[in-house]
Structure formats: structure tokens, C-alpha cells
Design a protein around this nucleic acid. Sequence first.
RNA 1: GGGCGAAUAGCUCAGUUGGUUUAGAGCGCCUGCCUUACAAGCAGGAAGUCGGGGGUUCGAAUCCCUCUUCGCCCACCA
Length: 889
Amino acid sequence: MTELAPQYDPAAIESTVYQRWLDAEVFTADRDSGREPYVIVIPPPNVTDILHMGHGLNNTLQDVMIRFERMRGREALWLPGTDHAGIATQNVVERTLRDEEGKARQDLGRAAFVERVWDHVNSKGGTILDQLKAIGASCDWSRTRFTLDEEYSAAVKRVFIKLYEDGLVYRGHRVIHWCPRCMTSLSDEEAEFHDRETRLWHIRYPLTDGSGHVTVATTRPETMFGDVALVHHPDDENHRALTGKTVRIPLTDVEIPIDVSTAVEREFGTGMLKVTPAHDANDFDIANAMGRDLDRPVVIDEHATMVDTERVPEALRGLDRDKARTRIVELLQAGGLLEKEEPYQHAVRRCYRCDTVVEPHLSHQWFVNMKPLAKRALQAYRDGEVRFIPERWGKVFENWLTEIRDWNISRQLWWGHRIPAWHCEAEECGKIIVAADEPAACSCGGTLRRDEDVLDTWFSSWLWPFATLGWPEETSDLKHFYPGHTLVTGPDIIFFWVARMIMGGYHFLGDRPFDTVYLNGIVRDSLHRKMSKSLGNGVDPLEVVDRYGADALRYNMVVGAAAGTDVILDERDLDAAFAAGRNFGNKLWNVARLILANLDGAPPSPGDVDASQFELADRWILSRAQRTTRAVTEHLHAFRLNEATSTVYHFLWDELADWYVEQVKPRLHGNAPGADAARAALVSTFDTTLRLLHPIMPFITEELWNYLPGEREPVLAGASWPEEETEYIDADAEERFELVQSLTGAIRGIRAEYGVKPGKTVRAAVEPASDIARSSFEAERSTVERLAKVEGLVFDSPDETVGAHAVLPDGSAVFVPLGDAIDVNAECDRLAREMQRLDKQLHRVTAKLENESFTKRAPAEVVDRERQKEQTWREQRDTLAAKRRSLGC
RNA sequence: GGGCGAAUAGCUCAGUUGGUUUAGAGCGCCUGCCUUACAAGCAGGAAGUCGGGGGUUCGAAUCCCUCUUCGCCCACCA
């Protein structure tokens, strides 16, 4: 006999259960098992991150999938690890350095600073992986990787060199996005658009011939000292006469020409555009097209302050870009050079790490030519080799790949993979050598200087599905576990990560990294805002684990996340968000308590029980268990995790606990007749339920598994998924037991309606509508009596006429004599209302059946079904009418 | 400017290929119960013109068009 506490206490068991899994080594993937592999690689969290709800959701989903496939018999590998997160991590350490020591990274120097970051990573990093254990993540911890560990670095280096040799990595001089706070370049994806209220200033450029001025509209007056021309559209009649003339940049003596360009939008502003090649990527292209690629005056530096050059008026030099702008506008106004100023809203790019407005910056950077890589990935998507769930994200992926641009991969940071390139310092040479190891010297004999830059973090992330398996070495892990299967991540990193992994997988290994990309939603608060540290609206998953248990967290995450939809959590009311999962766990716990308290050793399996020993209820629950197994399996296969969850939920609660456990109780006491059959069905059904629920709520199911008597796999996490046993599917038993349920429900309804005291028994008479109904009621007579508190369920009409009537869905009628408790008029009204409801339904179905186009065109089975409905409802109505007559209504 | 998504009960959401749905769940609400597994529970109940309009169909929450509101993504009109 096992003693379980009356309430489930997650905290009391979770850590020991997790340890049990580790001891059993069920999470460790075995290359040599001979089983078909199933692989998920974790989206590596930033090494210094702490777990937030987004991780909670994302990793729960992965764990459900990996546990399901593991139980299905696949060799499941969930590969964990962390990302060095270049800018993010460097920023954290720089901030600490500044706050605690008042120093900048330059004060330490590169080597010492990088050492500091390593110290930080080694002491504080990796916490998040332990936190994942708290939510039950079944990762193969023996294969944990870090994007900056030695082997991984080798892979990154290899990729860079290979792409360089293929001609796909090159060094370019152009205008890129520059974050003046992080002091590094950014890729297009890292410079996010945000709308901003600003002004459109109309500035007068005086014509040098003294014939007046030309007006130009701009949002960035501070860049005008870098102008090299004004251009208008060649077909622009209004400005045609100006072509060839020159103007002076306001506040300076710099003379620039007026030219034409088809890139100009005639309708915008004044139709005249200032061309500033060093401070605007489009202008850079326009100037190139005009053949003015040698003249790119720089007037704003990498700190976003005005440069100290002749082109910039002295009063402005050294001012930051915002102050300069204000000052320039004042000066223009004073000089009568500002024609007008209007409010204007436009999208400004900001650094995705620090939100600073990005500055277009002319510089030397490393780029990847992406078009050739995209081609293969696109083909794969279109051929169905990689699919997205929900499907619509595939289109997003496709569009981006179709219009892909070159990827700036160099960052002016210290923390990251240093670019394996060396520059010859000899004048006249300028050679660049890309190599894995430092070359002794340049072929010209000049000394070499290593490239200062590091690679974009995502340049290492895109190798994650194979670099984690040992690539470029031909490891057995790589052979065995690549290609992988499912990727679970957020749609916000489709471009950053997902698309690039697909491109990388095909380019470097000639195969997809995974076949399915499942995009989960975003966790939002009660106002539907994304949960974030900066808004302070986050819910701490560990607090939830602490208060409600990991299984409750998981249950609510999964049930609330229909494929790809956002999950809304009320940050002010955790009960509203997590009580359902906790309560469900407690329900399961108590079902187990009841069962375990009534077992004396292991019962036989249902297959060993003489079939004649099974009662209707036994056959019913065994059949329902099969149907549930099938539904849950199908839902999980189709990634309908929420449906799978609610299917088990309702099976356990509404069928097993509410009906079967109640039905079976009398047979559980001692050596009651039929005890073996009852225990066999009960334990086998409970066993199935634990298995089906395990991927979703692993802790409690594992703990209860431990108590179940009988021969079983030692740990549930390593146990097999239930097979549907069709011999137990019994439609007849299901139909019959449902009749019993409806009879019980009808009597309970009458009791409640007439306020019969819970302890008081009533009498009841049932008039079955069919032989099936009659024999079913007879078979479960005592169940109905017990559950509806009936003393003497009879099949004949009783002597009384005063009582309450109800009609069951199949047309069977039940009568509960209540004597004085009944108000005849009220009962008449109630029956009349019932009849009205049926009349409405009958009206609808009759109209349908009288419609020839329906009977002719709809499938026969649909028509039959409608006929069946009509007949049943008509019978029910007739029965009610008869009851009314007998009451004398 | 282009594209995508959402709108179903007071709240948060399901609803798979159009027909077993008389539109469901959890929470909340109302009534009655500490009934020996569970008050984190039990029994019963109220509550929705499926955002508006039009269309396709024998049949629409589901497909099409359109409008409204909200959200997201992409985009070189400075």
C-alpha cells in the first residue's frame, strides 16, 4: 500500500525525478542503437541570458516533441547549448566595467578585455541551461555546445575560408549601418525600422550664377556638407533648365553641380534630391551610377559627431549629430535659407541591441554574396524538402530569399570569432591573406597585420545544426544525426537564423538541416505587449515552477499555444494563467491515490482477464482509451500540441475520473466480484494515460509511474508510446455507456432543479426508447442508482403521477416522483419550454429534409443523419407531450 | 507603398478536409454540497445574431469579395 499526500506537491518531487532521468541516461542519444534518429537542435540562448517566458514556451514545445518521438522509439537527440552573442555579451561586460571600475574596454586593451568576458561567461554563463532542467527539458547534456568553443571555432573559420575561396566572401567599401553606441557595423537585419516623428526641412541651395536658389527637402540637414550634387529626374520639366548649373552648399562655399538621376521620385518634396554618398546607401549608389565614385566627403564620424574638416563650418565641428542638426536649422533660418519645415513621419533604423539610431557609415567591411546560397534553399523549399508550420511563414521565408542582399558579416567588436584574414602592411602591396593560421609573411615580404574585426554572431549561429555535431570533421555523430528533423523557434529570427541555417546546410553539407520549422508565437502580457525586461512586464518562469510546478507551467504553455499563435499571460494574476495546470496535476495525483489505495499487488493485464468478466463500463473505458491514444498520437504528429493536451485532459478528467473511477469503486473493495476485471481495466487505462500525458507533464507522470505495480519499463521517459489496440475498440459499449451517462445526468438535473437535498435519495422510473437502452440501463442500474442517489430505479411507471420528467437524447424518458415537492404548473411550463426547443430544432431539420436540392445533392450519410435527428427529436417531443397530458397540463 | 495575421461567452482562447456542433474549453459568474481520491474538489446552471455587409454552396464560424478595428513583417519617396 502506498501513501500519497492528498495534494500534489511538485516541489517535493521535481528535482529527484529529474535526477532519476539523468541516472537512467534516457536523454543521452545512442548512435549505435539502430533506431531511426530524431533530432532537434535547441535555439541556443545567449550564454549570459536568464530564462524568460519566451524560453519557457519555446523549450516546452521542443521537449514535448522530443519526448513524444523518444517514446515512439526514435533515437531522440535534443542538442543543447549556448550562443556567445557578440554584441549583447560585450555590452554587458562593458557596462559592468564602466559601472564598477569606471573604465572603457579600450583602457584594458583587447586581450585583457576578452579575458574579462571569458571570466564573466565562465562564472555567470550557462545558468540558463540549469534553468531549462527546472522546466523538465530532456536535452542530451553530454553534447552541450557553445558557439565559441574550440571545435566550433574551427568550423566557423573553415566556413569563412571556404566561402572566401569560393568567391562568396569578399571585402567591400560601402555605406553600411553603423551603431555609434556599440561602435560596430550591423547587418540589414540588425538595423530595425521604427517609425519616428520628425521634420522635413526645405532648404535653399543658392545658385552660383546668382539667379536665385534651388530648394531641396531633407530629413537630414546635418549631412548636407557631404553633398556632392543635387539631382532631379531627367523628365522633370520644372527642373530641366537647371541641369548643368551649380549651387553652393548653404553655410559654406562648396560648389556642387546639378545633375539628373532616374532614382529621383519626382513627386517627393521638391523633386530635387541632395546626393550624399558617404552618408546614405542610396546616394552612394546614385553617385556611383553618375560616375562620381571618387568623391565621397565624410562629414560625420563613427561617434556620430561632425567631423573637423574644411567642408564643415567651424561652429559645427565636433557637435554630435542631433545638436548639429538643431544648430544648422537655426543657422539656415537666420540666413533665410530655410524655406519651410513640416512635420514628417518616417521609418528610422535602430540598433537591435541598444536601440540607438543607426548612422549610415562608409567603411571597409566583409560581405557574403548571398544570392547563390539562396538559390538552393529556395529550390528546397519549393520542392517541399523544408516545410513551415504554420505554412504562411514559408512565404515570408521565400520573399526574403528572393530579394536577398549581401550580408555584412564583420563587426568592430572584440568578443567573437576573429576574422582569419591578414593584411599586408607594405605600401603598394595591400594584399589580403585568408588562412586558418597566421602566415609567416606576405609573399611581397611585407609584415602582416591581423584583421581587427570579429564575425557577426549569426555567422556562427547558422552552422549550429552541423557544427554542434563536429563538422567539419567527419564524426560519427555528424553521420548519424545529420540531417535533423524539427526546428522550433520564433518567427522573429526567420531571417537572422532559420533561413541562413537552411542555406548553410545545403551549401556546406548538401542537405537540409531539418525538414520542419515550427514557429511558436510570442508570449505577451494582459495588454498584449511582448514580455520584455525593459517593460518590466515579464513573468518569471522559475517563479511559476516554484508556485505551480513545472508541469503546470508546461500544461498552460502548450494548451494556450495553438500552432504559432501568441500566448497571452496576465502578468498580474498568475493564478488565472497557471491554476488550470496545477489543478489538473492534482486531479491526476488523486486518481492515482485512489487507484493505488485499492490495489493489492499488480492486477492482471486486460488481455489475461476472461472477457466475460468485463462489465459494460470496463469495455467502455478500454475503448475510450484506444480512441484517446489514437487522437493524441495524431494530434502530436500534426503538431497540434494543444489539441493533444486537451484530449488527454478531458479523457482523464471527464471520463476516467468522473465516470469510470466512480463506477468501479464498489468492485475495488476487498475481493468484490469482478475486482480483477475492474483493476485490470483501471490500471491499464491509467498506465496508458500516464504515457500519453508524459511528454506534456513529465514530472508528475514519472513520479506516479514509479508507484504503479507490475512489470514496466523502469522510467516512463524511456518507456514506449501506447499502440492503439483495436481489439478493445467497442462502439457498442460506447453507445451504451453514453446512454447510462445521459440517464444519470437527467436524474441529477431534476434533483438540482427541484432542490432535492444532496443526501436524500429519490425514486425514479425509466422508459427506455429501445432494447439497447433497456439492457444498458439494466446492466448499469446500480451505477445509476449510486451516482444519481436513486433508491429503486424501476422500469415501470410508478403509481404517482406527480413528479418531474425528462427525455434523454435517444428518446428514453425518465420520471422522478416528487410528491409535494412538485409544483405542477411549474413542471408543465418546464416541459413546454423543452417542447418549444425541440420544435425549433425540428422545424429546422424538417425544412432541410423537405428541400429537394439537399436530399439530392448532399451525401447520403449526411441526409441519413438528418433523418435520424428528425425521428429522435419527434419521439422526444411526443414523449414530452404525453407527460404533459398525464400531468393534466 | 507592399504583404501577413487576428476579431467566436465577462476574460483568455480552441474549433483539423465546409456536414455527428443543437458552436466548445479553462477562468470568472449563479445555485447547492467539506458525499471517505481530490474544496486545487463534486453536482447543476446562466451566458455567444462566431466584428459589419455582400457572395459561392443543398449546407458557411469554416471558402471568396468588401468594409471596420487591432497587431505584425517587409520596403532606398530623401
